[in-house]
Simulated assay, not measured.
Amino acid sequence: MPDAQDDVREAIAAELRLMDPAVRASRTLTASLLDPEFVEVGCSGRRYTYDETVAELPDHPGSSADGPRYEPSAFTGVVLAPGLVHLTYETHFDGRHARRSSLWRKQNEETGWRMYYHQGTPVPPGSA
């Protein structure tokens, strides 16, 4: 049986896959990593649903193999309950810095870890 750190590591690995341009460009791969009840509040303040994210992510920045890539750092994670992991981390992307938080849910072994909620908060230039 996996321990809490295994769950956190698996959630981080899934989060990193979602930043991979090849995954972001594929609706099928994106859908496999998002919970059907997924919701995101993006850095813009816009709210995205599962359907909107699966449909639109291939056209968003970071989804092109020859474009800018997300540079994540400072991952921390905690198991909130069995099958529920909260991650926080930071990204740098195309000159922008953001603090991010996501919830990953694992309902069964077949589907594995899926992102249930994500929020990005922009960090103003010059802020620590």
Results as ranks from 00 to 15, higher is better:
42 G>P: 05
124 P>W: 01
127 S>K: 11
30 T>M: 15
127 S>P: 00
74 A>P: 01
52 E>T: 06
95 G>K: 10
102 S>K: 03
99 R>A: 14
37 E>H: 11
88 T>S: 14
118 H>P: 00
10 E>C: 07
52 E>D: 13
98 A>P: 00
65 A>C: 07
55 A>V: 10
28 T>F: 09
83 G>H: 06
41 V>R: 12
126 G>N: 09
91 T>P: 01
66 D>A: 12
22 A>I: 09
34 L>Y: 03
1 M>K: 13
67 G>Q: 06
13 A>Y: 08
1 M>W: 06
36 P>W: 02
54 V>T: 05
57 L>H: 02
60 H>C: 11
62 G>T: 03
71 E>S: 13
8 V>P: 00
122 P>M: 12
66 D>H: 10
73 S>F: 05
96 R>H: 13
95 G>P: 06
61 P>S: 11
37 E>A: 15
106 K>R: 15
99 R>W: 08
8 V>D: 01
124 P>M: 08
74 A>I: 01
67 G>P: 08
107 Q>T: 15
8 V>H: 01
79 V>G: 02
55 A>W: 04
117 Y>E: 03
127 S>R: 13
16 L>E: 14
105 R>D: 02
40 E>A: 13
27 R>L: 04
27 R>C: 04
91 T>I: 15
7 D>V: 04
78 V>H: 12
48 Y>V: 02
6 D>I: 07
104 W>L: 07
13 A>T: 11
72 P>Q: 10
66 D>R: 09
60 H>K: 12
27 R>Q: 15
65 A>T: 13
111 T>G: 02
90 E>L: 08
14 A>C: 13
128 A>I: 07
91 T>Y: 01
75 F>R: 03
70 Y>F: 15
97 H>R: 15
93 F>S: 03
119 Q>Y: 06
119 Q>A: 10
72 P>N: 10
65 A>L: 14
44 S>F: 05
31 A>Y: 01
89 Y>T: 11
115 M>A: 13
102 S>E: 03
73 S>K: 11
111 T>K: 09
7 D>W: 09
63 S>I: 08
91 T>G: 04
87 L>P: 02
107 Q>H: 10
38 F>H: 09
68 P>R: 09
39 V>D: 05
11 A>R: 05
86 H>L: 15
60 H>S: 11
57 L>D: 08
61 P>W: 04
29 L>N: 01
69 R>I: 07
2 P>N: 11
86 H>C: 11
102 S>I: 02
33 L>S: 04
11 A>V: 06
17 R>I: 02
89 Y>E: 05
96 R>Q: 12
91 T>E: 11
16 L>C: 11
36 P>A: 08
